[in-house]
C-alpha cells in the first residue's frame, strides 16, 4: 500500500510534479483565505448591533436643572453626570494650581460652558459610580464626588484629588445644539 502511495506521490515526470505543487500551494492559499473570510461574520456579529449603535448618542434637555443641581443620564449604558455648577464651585475648580493635581488638567479644558460640567460618572480606579449627585450624598473632601468603593475624592471639576484613582473623571464628546440642549456622543 505504501508503495502504491509513493508511486502516486512521486511521479517520474518532474514537470508534472511541480505543476501539482503549484496547484497545491494556490489551492491551499485560496482555501485558507476563504476560511479566514468566513470567520469574519461570526466575529463581527459580536460587535455592537445596529440597535445598540443607534443609541450611541443621547440628547439632554438642560432647562429643568437648577443651579447647584445634578442629573444623571444614561449614555451608551454608562451614567453621565451633568452638573449645573454654582459660581462658587467654578471659582473653587479654577483656583487650584496644577501642582496639586494628580492628573493635571485645567477646569477650562474640561468644560465648554463654565456652568455646565458634563462627565462620565465612572470612577477611573475600578469602575464604581462615585457619590455626590444628590445633596444627601457625601461629596468627598473637595466638594465634588466621592467614590465609596476605595475612597477616591474628586473636586468640583471632577478631577482626582485623593485616593487610588489614577485619572480625572472622563469628559465625553458633546455639543450644545442650542442653549438648553446638549448632545452627548
Amino acid at each position: 500500500m505504501v508503495s502504491s502511495a509513493d508511486a502516486a506521490l512521486s511521479t517520474s515526470d518532474s514537470d508534472e510534479k511541480s505543476r501539482r505543487d503549484f496547484l497545491l500551494v494556490a489551492t491551499s492559499t485560496i482555501g485558507g483565505l476563504g476560511m479566514a473570510l468566513a470567520a469574519w461574520p461570526l466575529i463581527h456579529s459580536m460587535n455592537p448591533a445596529k440597535d445598540t449603535l443607534a443609541l450611541s448618542t443621547t440628547e439632554v434637555d438642560l432647562s429643568p436643572i437648577e443651579k447647584g443641581q445634578s442629573i444623571t443620564v444614561v449614555w451608551q449604558g454608562k451614567p453621565v453626570f451633568v452638573r449645573h455648577r454654582t459660581a462658587d464651585e467654578i471659582e473653587q475648580a479654577r483656583s487650584v494650581s496644577n501642582d496639586d493635581l494628580a492628573d493635571p488638567e485645567s477646569d477650562e479644558d474640561r468644560v465648554q460652558k463654565a456652568e455646565w460640567l458634563i462627565m462620565v460618572g465612572v470612577c477611573t480606579h475600578l469602575g464604581c459610580i462615585p457619590l455626590g449627585q444628590k445633596s444627601s450624598e457625601p461629596k468627598g473632601e473637595f466638594g465634588g464626588w466621592f467614590c465609596p468603593c476605595h475612597g477616591s475624592h474628586y473636586d468640583t471639576s471632577g478631577r482626582i484629588r485623593k485616593g487610588p484613582a489614577p485619572k480625572n473623571l472622563a469628559v465625553p464628546g458633546y455639543v450644545f445644539l442650542d442653549d438648553t440642549t446638549v448632545k452627548i456622543g
Binding site: W40, P41, L42, H44, S45, M46, N47, A49, K50, D51, T52
Partner: peptide
C-alpha cells in the same frame, strides 16, 4: 449570544438577529 428564550421576546430577538446584528441574517 443574541437569542432570548422567553415567549415574549423570542420572536423579536430572532428578528433582531435578522435585522440589527452584524451579519445576523447570514448566520
Amino acid at each position: 449570544m443574541h437569542y432570548t428564550a422567553h415567549v415574549d421576546y423570542a420572536f423579536d430577538s430572532v428578528e433582531r438577529i435578522m435585522r440589527d446584528v452584524n451579519y445576523g441574517w447570514l448566520i
